[in-house]
Design a protein around this nucleic acid. Structure first.
Lengths: 396, 396
DNA sequence: GATGGTTAGTAAATGCTGTTAACTAAGTGT
DNA sequence: ACACTTAGTTAACAGCATTTACTAACCATC
């Protein structure tokens, strides 16, 4: 499998070991500073098991020991943290508007990044371009002496759940591309785990995996850019990204929310993307394809027509959020993608619509927190890197 | 956890054993008649492991040996089947219109059933009524001498993912009911696994778990009755039912598909349930709450107004199916619930809409098969029983 | 009908896993 | 100095799947 995880269904002792190792790593990731004893308590493993696994992980540069705990009575435990010094993961996004690359450490800290705002042409040329940038990125000062765990690539379209193949990228005109194979033909790329995933899935994974603060139970990441996609993640120790039969989970841009509405490029009428998406807004606001959408909108912020279009788009986004809630019911919603640069003019109506249309089912419980990511340039690339780490942790 | 499965995240040797046992059982369930050698090949376990696990399962009455295989050359293997003779599971549905109960064996065959079309009143009285019926059911001739694995109960509303508690049943007026606790106060009920789940989730689980023929990778079961719900299941050996943060996964009846449309009882406008659901159709067709909706519709089948209403409802259902596909992307759709008794007049427009609105993303691959269940009286109850079996298989 | 070839299934030895129970280490409080 | 508490390690132990060698059962061929 090319996914970050496919929870195994039958196993030998090796699998058991790797399961426990992964669990311990994720416990530290989600709660940095725990001691061995804390981990044993939380995971249900014995002190002895935790001790031996931790020792191995420290030796291999995945964990590091920190300060002593100071809670009265008894010998103090020693804090454990992910080791940010000895490994790194590469993540890249092939976006409609350009390439973005990051190298980050086990803590999700971006050590180096490159972005090149030039649209991809054909797959082979793009692979060559990306490979050259990867080589360049790996020469960054703090990276050269670290071990590379692998490479994750995010692409703007559904990826088959059965093989790491991009089925369709409407905005690039690519169909059934084995992008990793094209990359593998390029020289000087690292070994390790290689993964391919949809952009929204990768972004969702990264935001969940490297979440700062109390980790949510599950999240849905709505990626609003040229199109609208969505990735879902849940799972404490083994974050799972549902992909569905054809990798179409979260293709909410093509859910119909206005029957008989405008014609969508997918062939149907009234898709969400006809109301809220980069191309729909450009069309409605007569903004040229090469011009900056956000600049154009912000410049004409006082324009009544612009406000009406943005309100309509924002409310469509709010409606999508509600529908998503009644279908996937994540414990947190994250809004990202280039459209978030439009700021309040879009998120204002969206959040207002979402807040005022909570129905009885939702009102019953706490409101779902919504997090808006203003600049999501490297979110998908970092997410792809996170998937590499998750996978490598199993394969250690 | 009260769910059928919560894949464990860390484990001892015991867990490993139970994992492999469950895998072997599910391999036989999905492909009856395999030999030990076949199972070893498929699961990756060794012949020795399979042999010892199978022996234990045969002794405990979960598997039985069948005929010898006859494929030329070499010693023939012995076919293995689930043993339908020594165990049974109880499943019950507390429905808006009445109670349904089944007892079924490991093959999903219904050994005995009761349904009582009288709406539930308050929770305590209903628990008492259900308990009496369960006692009656267990006295059926073929059941008395079997071992009971437990009891599953399906309810018409979301169940909290954290505890077996019915959060809200709008059509019963119940809020936060610990129905299993009420049941436990009743005398003469069996021990074993006790589970509570949403009706659509239970139904989906059962249709997936006891699927006849080549098992699909994942399914979505749309339950169209008084309201519209949906359950999703995927996972080869450990079928998982996503529940979400508040147990609202699949509450597609309250996705908005007609902004500014009719007022729904949930407080919003334009929910799917305002177009296609028992109460919406009754209202549109002026059918009394106590009268049979299907009889009324079938009697006035030639009526132009009836046809228009049914067409509108069917197309809304088709649209829901499409949206579901772009959000959860199951490999098979199953339509069930009491509304399916309306037959072609509803499913005709729904399937037509679904077929003619496949967009580029879907057209690319094979069309998703849709299965319609005409009589789904016991589907949810049997599904609840299936969940009991799945859970018991882990705990053996 | 005996022989060799092939596949199914079992048995005993082996190596690896987590657990248990006893230990040492390192603090606090009296 | 001593008892007490908690953290972490160690070595003996029990349980699991694997390996390897074996037996069982059927077929084809001579």
């Amino acid at each position: 499998m090319h996914n970050a995880f496919t929870p195994q269904t039958s196993g030998d002792l090796n699998y058991l070991k790797s399961l426990n190792r992964s669990t311990i790593l994720s416990t530290v990731r989600r709660s940095p500073g725990l001691s061995r004893a804390d981990i044993a308590l939380r995971t249900g493993l014995t002190k002895a098991t935790v001790g031996s696994v931790v020792q191995a992980l420290v030796e291999r540069g995945w964990l590091r020991e920190g300060e002593l705990h100071a809670r009265g009575g008894g010998r103090p435990g020693r804090a454990l943290y992910l080791d940010g010094e000895r490994h790194y993961m590469l993540g890249a996004e092939v976006g409609v508007k350009g390439l973005r690359l990051v190298a980050c450490n086990l803590l999700g800290v971006v050590l180096a990044s490159i972005h090149q705002e030039e649209p991809p042409t054909d797959p082979a040329t793009t692979a060559k371009r990306l490979a050259a940038l990867l080589v360049q990125l790996r020469q960054a000062p703090d990276i050269a002496e670290r071990r590379c765990l692998g490479l994750g690539v995010a692409v703007p379209g559904p990826v088959s759940p059965r093989a790491p193949i991009l089925s369709l990228a409407p905005n690039l005109g690519w169909v059934d591309i084995d992008f990793l194979a094209l990359l593998r033909e390029q020289p000087d790329l690292p070994d390790g785990v290689w993964l391919l995933d949809n952009e929204a899935n990768a972004a969702a994974f990264g935001e969940f995996y490297f979440f700062e603060g109390v980790p949510p139970e599950s999240i849905a990441y709505i990626s609003a850019g040229s199109g609208i996609g969505c990735g879902v993640v849940s799972g404490e120790h083994f974050p799972l990204v549902p992909r569905g039969h054809q990798g179409l989970v979260g293709e909410i841009g093509h859910t119909v929310i206005q029957p008989g509405g405008a014609l969508c490029h997918c062939g149907n009428h009234g898709c969400a993307e006809t109301l809220v998406s980069g191309w729909a807004l450009r069309e409605a606001l007569h903004v040229d394809i090469d011009a900056s959408l956000s600049n154009a909108v912000l410049a004409r912020a006082e324009d009544g027509e612009v406000q009406a279009v943005m309100k309509r788009a924002g409310e469509a986004l709010g409606l999508l959020m509600l529908n998503l809630h009644h279908t996937l019911n994540p414990s947190m919603l994250i809004l990202g993608g280039s459209l978030m640069k439009l700021g309040e003019s879009l998120t204002g109506p969206a959040l207002a619509y979402f807040a005022t249309h909570q129905n009885d089912l939702l009102r019953q419980s706490q409101t779902v927190p919504v997090k808006v990511i203003g600049d999501s340039t490297y979110v998908a690339a970092r997410g792809a890197a996170a998937q590499v780490m998750a996978r490598a942790a199993i394969e250690i």
